[in-house]
Every structure is written in C-alpha cells, then in structure tokens.
C-alpha cells in the first residue's frame, strides 16, 4: 500500500443549534470518521443531505475547525496549522464548490478570480500575472476572451471551469471537489467529468470527490466511502462496492437510483421514512430505524465499528 497523502483520524464536528429561546442543542454533523487518501487516487465520498460529507470537505480545507480528531497531510499534522504553514497548506489543498455561480464574486472579472491565488501566494503582477492566468485558463479549455467577462455572462459549465482554474492555479496536490457537477446539465456534466479525469492525469492530482450522485462517483472514482449521518458505513473499490454492496444502506441507496433505461430492475428496495435529524442520531447503528435487514437488539444498542473485510473493503454493520 502506498503511503497516504491525507490521513484523517476520528474526525468529528458538532454544531450548536439554537432550538427555541435560549436553548441550544448539539447537532453531530461528522461523527468520528477515519479516512486515508492515497496519492493519485480519486476517492468518492457519497451520502445524502445531512450525511456530513460537505462538512468533512470544509474541515480538510481548514475552513472549519474540527471538534475532535486529527488530519495529517503528507506526514504533517494540519489540524491546527496557523500563519505561514497554513498558507503553504492552502497551496497544496484546493476546493471546487457545487454552485459555480455562487462561488465566483459577481462584482469581479474572471481575471480577478483566477488571479487571486497567484497574487496572494506568488506575488505575481502585470504581464507575468496575465500570462499565468491565460495559461491556467488554457489548461481548463477557456480562451483569453473570458478574462474581462463577469460571471453572469458565462454558462454554468464555463463558470465551473473558471472555478477549477482558480483551484489548480497553484499546482495543488489534493483537489477537493464538492458536488462539482450537480448544478450542471447532463451534457455539460459529461464534459466536466471527462475533463476532470483528464486533468487528474495531466496535473498528477489526487481527488476527494464529494457527491450525492452515485453514477458520477462510479464514473470518476477509484474508491468510494458511503456516509450516513456523519459516519462512514462502507468503503472499498468503486467497482466492488457498486456491484456487490455489503451494507444494507449502500444496497438501498444503489437500488433507489432510477436508471435511464426502458426497464427498471425488479426488486427495488425503497426505504421507508426520512433520514433522522443530526440532532437526534439513533442509538447503536444510526441506520437501524430504516434498515430492512436489522438483525435484532444489537443494532439498537451497539455501534458497529468500521471493520476491514477482504479486498480492502471496510463495512460498519453487525451482519
């Protein structure tokens, strides 16, 4: 096994939520997850809303501080980096957000947005800056014509390319992609996905790809981690997990996706009920109230650990 580029141990994040007058409750967004990204891989983190996958991204980016746990990037503990060291980390980990329109400052030109990291970290100015910005835009397949345009004049796909350009301008090692294509149309999504695949090889990147869309993860990622209510319930190689899911949640998740084909497969598992609130995570296995294959009291009382199984898979289930 190659050394991990990023290793996350027991990462936890609680939010204090105001509930009524002067009452505070704790929402558990991320609940002690372990994760190791190998250099050069594309790791997909999937889950429904409220599963905590975006919170994980924001913690890795150091936009949000963890309640507990450690994060180690290339052998260095980054959990509490400050100042100069944090700036160096920012050169190496970058992020692309879901909504390309909202992640570009509406009052600034494309040039400004792409130049910003270069100005901050490299101190580039004038012609050198202009050349580098054009070069980066070239990488994402946009011509210099876009330099002085404003975000509202670009299409969704073009805007997402600008966001990717900004993220790769400093040659990062790890790119966190937080639902980068879910705001895009199918044909544009196809372009961006293919482009991301190609970019990863060209720039020698590692991806942490966060998505609720299983097909997209299947297409782009090597390994996948499935999150439910702040915990990873199953992890393994994409092809293995998708063809033979072990955890009942993964099974129902995969089975719930409506397929773009004439005949929907028989025997679909439709889960009843809603995802519980992160403010009231069920005891034991968080999935037990909805689980179609619950085996008994152990599911309600004991939290299953994420155990290793053959073929590099990990599953958190009492089954």
């Amino acid at each position: 096994m190659s050394a991990a580029l990023l290793e996350v141990r027991g990462l936890t994040r609680h939010f204090r939520v105001r509930d009524g007058f002067r009452q505070h409750r704790t929402a558990v967004a991320v609940d002690g997850i372990d994760l190791a990204l190998r250099a050069g891989e594309a790791y997909g983190l999937v889950g429904e809303s409220g599963s905590g996958k975006s919170t994980v991204a924001r913690m890795i980016l150091r936009l949000l501080s963890p309640t507990a746990g450690t994060m180690v990037f290339r052998g260095q503990d980054i959990t509490a980096l400050q100042g100069e060291a944090l700036m160096r980390l920012r050169e190496n980990i970058q992020i692309v957000f879901q909504d390309p329109h909202a992640s570009l400052n509406p009052r600034k030109t494309i040039f400004f947005s792409v130049a910003e990291p270069l100005v901050i970290h490299r101190g580039l100015r004038g012609t050198a800056l202009q050349n580098r910005v054009e070069e980066v835009l070239e990488i994402v397949g946009l011509s210099g014509n876009f330099l002085y345009r404003y975000p509202h004049e670009l299409s969704g796909g073009q805007k997402q390319r600008v966001c990717i350009a900004r993220a790769v301008a400093l040659d990062p090692k790890l790119l966190v992609l937080d639902e980068p294509t879910s705001a895009l149309d199918v044909s544009v999504q196809a372009q961006v996905l293919e482009f991301l695949r190609d970019l990863k090889a060209r720039l020698d990147l590692t991806y942490l790809f966060i998505s609720h869309d299983l097909s997209v993860v299947r297409h782009l990622c090597d390994r996948v981690g499935v999150m439910y209510l702040g915990r990873i319930v199953e992890e393994g190689a994409v092809a293995k997990v998708f063809s033979a899911p072990d955890h009942p949640y993964t099974q129902s998740l995969l089975s719930a996706v409506p397929l773009p084909q004439a005949k929907q497969p028989a025997g679909r598992i439709v889960l009843s009920g809603d995802v519980p609130s992160p403010m009231a995570v069920p005891s034991g296995c968080a999935f037990h109230p909805r689980c179609p294959r619950k085996i008994g009291a152990v599911c309600e009382t004991e939290r299953p650990s994420l155990d290793s199984r053959p073929q590099g898979r990990r599953v958190a289930c009492h089954l």
């Binding site: 936009l63 700036m87 992020i95 957000f97 909202a102 992640s103 947005s113 990291p117 901050i120 900004r166």
Partner: peptide, 20 residues
C-alpha cells in the same frame, strides 16, 4: 457565500476579503 469561502481557501486574509 461560497465565493468568500473560495477566497479563504486560496488564502485570502481578512483585509482582502473585506475590500475585494
């Protein structure tokens, strides 16, 4: 807003975030 988060992620400091 995500664009402010994006600016923080590329290392923009407070003055930069306020003025730009």
């Amino acid at each position: 807003e995500p664009f402010v988060d994006a600016a923080r992620a590329v290392g923009a400091g407070m003055p930069r975030i306020i003025f730009f």
